[in-house]
């Protein structure tokens, strides 16, 4: 009993340290990197959804981007149609996307491996058509205009001038902190152990008395809620629409999760930072070469793809796993 309590407090402490570190970082960075860091914080939640779903319970989803879109649309409609604040909208995003995850979970509980991957991929592909089909509500191809708005007066009076990017970051980080804490607690709880048991051997888990299909559905619900929150925040950067959540976004989340380390929270953070900052890093590194746009524009995709292949072949545990192994030598 005492041990559980200690784990909980430790998780809380680390989540808080993470939050303070990001906020401190936000105060010293220039606006562009504040914006990029905000994207890292948003995608971190999305990558955590992959960590839970794929890394922990072993279910592959290629459609997390679509669940992000569900969250995005839920929050945008809450803001635009009900006139509620972005905070209510974010709660709504979690609820609606979790419900979508529940539906998806019923299908997922019966599917495995490539069949599940295919089903979720179709979801991501179908999104633009849905947005067009229900255009009067979802705004069609153009999407719905929403944003974080201006920083609240109390924050400005407490901390002085706050830029738009800085406000994006500060509005996102507390939620990232909660997602981080929730993931850490789930993973170190009985639920997390059940999910891992299912991932490692379904029949064995079942023999130990774990209800496999219920747990699979539950994983989908939780993971979808995370994806929805991430998508709502991502949409609040300016617009919710099909071109914000393309199929490549689903693959980006998976790439981030695999590069960083599919089975660890630190890996999810490393992966999110990597996919966001990699293009900037490549641009910075190749600037002296003055590459033509025809090469430069495709380099991030190419290098990301090569890194992904190398990770799967040479270091399947991802960067987090490699760092840990190195330290324990």
């Amino acid at each position: 009993m005492f041990k559980y309590k200690r784990t909980g407090i430790r998780n809380l402490a680390i989540a808080l340290i993470f939050t303070v570190a990001i906020i401190a970082l936000g105060a010293i960075l220039d606006p562009y990197n504040q914006g990029q860091l905000a994207v890292v914080s948003m995608l971190f939640i999305g990558v955590l959804s992959v960590t839970l779903l794929t890394g922990t319970s072993g279910q592959i989803s290629l459609g997390q981007g679509a669940l992000m879109a569900v969250g995005g649309y839920a929050s945008a409609l809450t803001i635009l149609n009900l006139g509620l604040s972005i905070w209510f909208a974010l709660v709504m995003a979690i609820i609606v996307s979790a419900l979508a995850g529940l539906l998806l979970g019923f299908a997922a509980a019966r599917l495995t491996g490539p069949y599940l991957a295919g089903t979720t991929l179709v979801l991501a592909l179908a999104l633009p058509s849905l947005a067009i089909r229900f255009e009067s509500v979802l705004g069609g191809d153009v999407g719905l205009n929403v944003d974080f708005g201006n920083p609240p007066a109390w924050l400005v009076s407490a901390f002085g001038e706050i830029g738009y990017e800085q406000w994006q970051l500060y509005a996102t980080v507390p939620l990232t902190c909660l997602a981080l804490l929730a993931t850490a607690n789930i993973l170190s709880s009985r639920t997390g152990r059940m999910w891992r048991a299912i991932r490692d051997h379904e029949s064995a888990a079942s023999l130990m008395g774990i209800n496999v299909s219920n747990n699979k559905i539950f994983t989908f619900v939780v993971s979808s809620g995370f994806a929805g929150l991430s998508g709502a925040l991502y949409g609040l950067r300016g617009i919710v629409g099909p071109s914000v959540y393309p199929i490549s976004l689903s693959l980006l989340l998976l790439t981030g999760a695999i590069l960083g380390g599919l089975r660890s929270i630190a890996g999810a953070l490393i992966g999110s930072a990597l996919v966001v900052f990699l293009p900037d890093l490549i641009e910075w590194a190749t600037r002296p070469l003055a590459l033509s746009e025809q090469i430069g524009n495709y380099l991030p995709g190419l290098i990301g793809g090569v890194l992904l292949h190398l990770t799967v072949i040479l270091n399947p545990g991802g960067i987090a796993h490699a760092l840990h192994r190195h330290k324990n030598k």
Partner: peptide
């Protein structure tokens, strides 16, 4: 598998 955030590595990472 290392579920918690206990590793000092996480702080180093931040």
């Amino acid at each position: 598998f290392h579920p918690s955030l206990s590793k000092p590595g996480f702080l180093t990472l931040v």
